[in-house]
Simulated assay, not measured.
Amino acid sequence: MIIDGMALLFRGFYATSYSGYIMKTSKGVPTNAIYGFVKYMQDAIRTFQPTHVLCCWDMGAKTFRNELFPAYKANRGEPPEELIPQFDLVKKVVDSFNIPNIGVEGYEADDCIGTIAKKYSDQLQIQILTGDRDTLQLVTEAVQPIIMKKGMSNYEVYTPEKLLEEKGLTPAQFIDLKGLMGDPSDNFPGVKGVGEKTAIKLLTQYESIAGILENLPNLSKGIRNKIETELDMLHLSRKLAEIHCEVPVEIELDKCIRNMEEEKIIAMLQELEFERLLKDGSFIEGLKVNVEPLV
């Protein structure tokens, strides 16, 4: 299981702060995002019982995508003040679970996730724990994103069949979809005036962006003009949308084997003053290995 660290941390923050109350230690250190993070992580481990676990992180705001398109993610504001000190602390927490933290400057966590998934999917079944549907482009029979839905223990596991049934698209077409329609959350526009419905219709008919461009004369005048006007942005948006699976990242697979030590976890929970989890016997129990690791 590859954990999308930022996805879990932000989800944990907003799930525990919507009322305006922020959990803090007796020393005033905010911990609400970390509390949510460890609960989500434990629940997924208990549910899916992975033999190996690692956690991938973004390493700063700027990546190669900002060099390609300076406005990339420029629409995002600063993170909440109470979340900032939890960015470093959560990695210490992950360490206490004997789970490796992985990240490479200049790349997003998704790029590390994609690279590792691609490299090791011939040895292990890979599951990606995230709330980010961008990972649907990574779907294969051996790579299955687990999309976290609202609430605890609410997951959607994607296979090629599931993606085709739900979207009518292959994983490769999912990249072209984002190239055509853009992504407001990442602040790149795609082709102005082409929404999801039109993009899916075009991809269903012509299979890919390349196929659409080969058949421009067959398109309606309005759609053809939009694409021709935004041709450069179409190609750039597709490049921005595609997860880069050639990141210079190395992992030691044997260090990812799930081997959590109860004493280390309890000591960390005590440091964070997570009394509720310490009293909950099922929390530690849910982390214990009940499958044989594959090396």
Results as ranks from 00 to 15, higher is better:
F48Y: 11
L124R: 12
P70R: 14
N66M: 01
I116Y: 07
E108M: 05
F64G: 09
E82V: 03
I102V: 15
S121K: 08
F97V: 14
C55D: 10
T47S: 10
P85Q: 09
T140S: 01
T135G: 04
D132V: 06
I84T: 04
Y107W: 11
L124C: 05
T135K: 15
D134F: 15
E105K: 15
T47N: 11
T135I: 14
E141G: 12
Y107D: 01
P80Q: 00
D43Q: 03
T63G: 09
M59E: 06
I126S: 02
I113Y: 07
D95K: 14
L138H: 08
G131S: 00
V104E: 02
F69A: 02
T130I: 14
F64E: 08
F97S: 11
N98P: 03
I45W: 04
P85H: 06
C55A: 14
I84R: 10
I99K: 01
A61P: 02
N101G: 05
Q125M: 09
R133V: 08
C56A: 15
T130P: 08
Q127I: 08
E108T: 04
H52S: 07
F97W: 15
Q137W: 05
Y72M: 02
D95W: 13
F48Q: 01
F69R: 07
V139C: 13
V139T: 11
E81V: 09
D134G: 12
G103V: 11
Q137F: 07
A74E: 12
D95L: 06
I116G: 03
Y120N: 07
Q86S: 08
I113Q: 01
A44E: 10
S96I: 07
E78C: 09
A109F: 15
K119V: 10
Y107I: 06
P50V: 02
D110I: 00
F48R: 03
S96Y: 08
D122I: 02
G77F: 15
D58F: 13
T140A: 00
V93K: 03
F48P: 01
K91G: 00
D132N: 14
E67T: 15
G60S: 07
E108I: 11
N75S: 06
I102G: 04
I113M: 04
T47F: 12
G131E: 00
W57K: 01
D110Q: 02
L89T: 05
A71H: 01
I113S: 02
P85M: 08
N98C: 05
P100N: 03
D95N: 11
A74C: 05
G60I: 13
D88C: 06
L54V: 03
E81D: 04
L138C: 04
F69M: 04
P100K: 08
T63P: 04
Y120K: 11
G77N: 11
T140Y: 00
Q86Y: 13
K62G: 03
I84W: 09
